[in-house]
Design a protein around this nucleic acid. Structure first.
Lengths: 223, 223
DNA sequence: GCCTCTATCCCCCAAACACGGGATGCTCCG
DNA sequence: CGGAGCATCCCGTGTTTGGGGGATAGAGGC
């Protein structure tokens, strides 16, 4: 992920105020040290739990929150979602050792602004924090690729359609409006049995067993 | 019309073979020069149109394609989609002056692997090409952010307009997967009658008369 | 304590549906 | 011409559903 403009943190301007959320004491301490060692950055607080974070972060209103995912009781994802509710403009970077697609997506959905791996090098962490402050969405190349692919998948299923005849498609459209067979029959001026027949074929082609499933499929495959 | 360029005399490993697709001669020439000036990269061909690209790129099978979006007749997006059909593994970077959300998304859906702005600095272009070859999805910070936001928008919005209880929503979700009452009952470990009961309430709240209609409503209300 | 909301379970019955068989035309294509 | 594909109709059987009518029990607000 590239970053563009990045105002150099000079001694003149106040440091970027960072809060860390991480439950393991050892890890927390070393991250605090690392952050404070970055010129222009100051770790003004560290939280040991999601509850703690929700309590102390809003009044502090820091520039960036570095959030671990695995926290006791409330996950970092949950915590992210809640923080974003209160402070929509706060920048939250997920910082975790685990690179799991589901977690990444859940975190992004929850409102995380970036997703970094803990093995990220100090200079990359710094770059990522500047990036996120500049409106970027920093993440590793692999994660970016997966997000894009997921994005693509979501968009593509949109088009994957089985070949239905025009009549079948008409029936399916009316089906998806919630009409009963008889109503569909009336609207198409055919008999209810014929509608049933078309339905049978539609079910076969779409590999579904009920009108509800057919509707669901039809709707997602063209959202 | 196209122009062939001699590959750079390389060091140990062969240079990255790049093909440029760009219709404007002036822009094209300067990009060719730029690419060839990057150590380890060679612009082995440049195409002036999508049709041209579809003809010459498959046999060449380059490492990276740099694609302009605005091409006469066939857009760079269309061209990207077709190239990806033939050469799924080819890496295509969209390189354009215009930073339009719709275009970005269309390009990514079409299979583009990255999206760069023309004002990208030479070293960033180089980094992006290496990134994409390494499995990344290079794009500018702002674009990454928008992709993530779009991703978020698409994924979120599980909330419906009507207030359903959590149980009701669970039932509705399973309903929209096409399950029968009994199956839903099994999955929720409740009785089929209870499912029917929830369904009745859902129908009342959503003002529908059938599961198909409920599913249709549910799906559209979160598109 | 009372009341509302929620979730759970139950009964009944007419109507709708799923799904297995067909059958008849009609058109298009090789 | 023969066949494939489509749309239309029919029948029969067993299952599912929608829409009535309740009842009970817990949680939470007032």
């Amino acid at each position: 992920m590239k970053q563009s403009l990045t105002p150099l943190p000079s001694a003149a301007r106040p440091p970027v105020r960072v809060v860390l959320v991480e439950d393991k004491p050892g890890v927390r301490d070393s991250w605090v040290k690392l952050i404070n060692s970055l010129p222009g950055f100051s770790c003004i607080q560290s939280c040991t739990s999601g509850e703690d974070a929700l309590r102390v972060i809003p009044p502090l209103n820091p520039d960036v929150v570095l959030m671990d995912i695995f926290l006791p009781r409330m996950s970092g994802i949950e915590c992210t979602a809640r923080l974003k509710l209160q402070l929509p403009k706060i920048q939250i970077l997920i910082l975790t050792a685990v690179e799991d697609d589901e977690l990444v997506f859940m975190a992004l959905e929850a409102g995380a602004d970036g997703y970094l791996l803990k093995r990220t090098k100090p200079e990359d962490l710094k770059a990522a924090m500047l990036d996120v402050l500049g409106g970027g969405a920093p993440m590793t190349s692999e994660i970016a690729r997966r997000v894009v692919e997921s994005f693509r998948r979501a968009a593509r299923q949109t088009k994957s359609t089985v070949h239905l005849t025009t009549r079948e498609e008409e029936v399916l459209i009316l089906l998806s409006k919630g009409y009963a067979n008889k109503e569909i029959a009336d609207q198409l001026s055919i008999s209810a049995e014929t509608v049933g027949s078309h339905l049978k074929h539609i079910y076969e082609k779409m590999h579904v067993r009920s009108r509800a499933e057919a509707v669901a499929r039809y709707m997602t495959s063209r959202a």
